[in-house]
């Protein structure tokens, strides 16, 4: 246990002094902020054009609810965070093996399993900080650019703010559940690859390949952890939440899919991490 604490301290010491960790924490929030600002600019341009053309000033009070943009920001940020975590997971161990620094830790104080566990913990901390920053940035910026409110039509409240928040919270939880598995997948590739470059390209390549092919797998895709995280070809529940909070009533989600979303990533996490521990014990460092 002492060795694990030393390994975690060692990880955090380096993380606080290097650029990669800061990038993981800040990049998703920055990209979400950029998206929200661009949407607002486009929207302002559209409104200006409508008024010049003598438009009726039609108010899209439903579609322009800040909650919709908040969820879009989260979705974009989490898509980026998923890719960054896979890449950083793949990079972390293999890079330190490439430069040889990991040898000092192994010889002096910590076991191989502690090193890998410390990296898992460290990446989870980064993910947590990144999600918190993303939440704060998206929420504040969406509130500044649009207005939060209930979904109402003809003065009749269709969905209350409380219900919207509950849906967003559910969508967020379901989108976050696959991230630990993504981290463990990156680490598994990291301990298996011959170099850091190979590890990162392989991990990102496989992740993008899964993203492309999950559509072809049909219901089988529901047993893949990666199917549930926001991604380039997004099938996550957060995508549906974005429509729900904009007042679309055609969103039908099978409860069994939500259950699979909640529980499939855990065995994937355990499987990837156990395989990583098995490999790291046996490979040359």
């Amino acid at each position: 246990m002492n060795g694990l604490l030393v390994a975690i301290k060692s990880e955090l010491f380096v993380a606080l002094r290097t650029f990669a960790s800061k990038l993981i924490v800040a990049a998703p929030a920055l990209i979400a902020a950029a998206q929200l600002l661009l949407v607002k600019l486009t929207e302002a341009g559209q409104q200006a054009r409508d008024s010049l053309l003598g438009g009726s000033g039609f108010e899209q009070s439903v579609a322009n609810n800040a909650y919709g943009f908040f969820v879009d920001g989260l979705s974009t940020g989490l898509t980026m965070l998923g890719l960054l975590l896979v890449a950083q997971g793949a990079y972390s161990f293999s890079y330190e093996r490439d430069i040889g620094s990991i040898r000092h830790s192994l010889i002096r104080r910590v076991s191989r399993s502690s090193v890998l566990t410390a990296k898992l913990v460290h990446l989870h901390l980064l993910a947590l900080l990144s999600v918190l920053l993303l939440l704060i940035t998206s929420y504040l910026l969406s509130g500044m650019l649009w207005e939060y409110g209930a979904i109402a039509e003809d003065g009749f409240e269709l969905i209350s703010e409380q219900e919207i928040r509950e849906e967003i919270w559910l969508g967020l939880r379901l989108a976050l559940v696959p991230l630990p598995a993504a981290i463990a997948f990156g680490l598994l590739i990291s301990v298996s690859a011959q170099s850091a470059t190979q590890a990162v390209t392989t991990a990102l390549g496989i992740t993008l390949a899964i993203d492309i092919f999950k559509g072809l797998l049909g219901d089988m895709a529901n047993y893949l952890y990666a199917s549930f995280q926001p991604s380039l070809i997004d099938q996550s529940y957060l995508q549906s939440v974005s429509r729900i909070v904009r007042g679309y009533s055609d969103v039908l989600i099978d409860d069994s899919v939500l259950q699979l979303n909640m529980w499939v990533p855990f065995p994937a996490l355990l499987l990837f991490f156990a395989a990583g521990l098995f490999i790291v014990q046996r490979r040359k460092i």
């Binding site: 380096v14 430069i99 620094s101």
Partner: peptide, 14 residues
């Protein structure tokens, strides 16, 4: 027990 290797084995960005 400590070891010093033929390559410096240090974090280049520290």
């Amino acid at each position: 027990l400590v070891a010093i290797f033929d390559s410096p084995s240090l974090h280049p960005n520290l």
